[in-house]
């Protein structure tokens, strides 16, 4: 099983666009409980399907961009790290439905999901290993995908 991010990133970039999107959906789903926004679930469910259309993804991307913008911590406001975890969960969901030129969708979702976990850990005053634990979980999900 992969154990470092350099290999992980290369492996993700080598996946087909559909496999990337489906794996991204799994990464995002893992942090979905950190967001109270019900709109994320619909996007993740759609992204996990192999037969979703470009139009469907575009519509969801538009909706999720709104969720991401709404959930930014604005300059000068007190950061609520619980809410910030939700923001990064939304960014992970957005990565599932919005291809980004030159970047791996699955990698983008993975990083946002880790930030969501890190934000939740900061909110809980917990240790800072949350990102590492999430990374291990992502390596496992990737291995499962390869094993199918």
């Amino acid at each position: 099983m992969i154990s470092d991010d350099r290999t992980f990133r290369s492996a993700l970039e080598a996946l087909s666009p559909i496999a990337q999107r489906q794996l991204a959906a799994q990464f995002a789903a893992a942090v979905l409980p950190l967001s109270g926004d019900t709109r994320l679930q619909a996007a993740i469910t759609t992204a996990a399907r192999s037969d979703c259309s470009v139009a469907e993804l575009a519509r969801l991307a538009m909706m999720l961009r709104g969720v991401v913008v709404e959930s930014y911590s604005s300059c000068g406001s007190e950061c609520d790290w619980h809410a910030q975890a939700g923001h990064f969960a939304a960014r992970a969901a957005l990565a599932c439905v919005q291809p980004h030129a030159g970047r791996s969708q699955a990698w983008e979702a993975a990083m946002a999901a880790r930030m969501a976990r890190t934000s939740a850990a900061i909110a809980a005053g917990a240790g800072t290993d949350a990102s590492r634990d999430e990374a291990q979980q992502q390596y496992r999900l990737f291995a499962e995908l390869q094993g199918r």
Binding site: D5, S73, C75, G76, S77, E78, C79, W81, M111, R114, M115, T118, A121, I122, G125, T128, D129, A130, S131, R132, A135
Partner: peptide
């Protein structure tokens, strides 16, 4: 409020060192 947090915490948005350290670890992993 932002000014008060700057005086009390050192950041207008209430970012403390442990939060920065957590982000540093995230970036190091990435």
């Amino acid at each position: 409020d932002a000014t008060r947090r700057t005086v009390e915490v050192g950041s207008p948005m209430g970012v403390r060192l442990p939060a920065l350290q957590a982000q540093m670890r995230h970036v190091e992993a990435e």
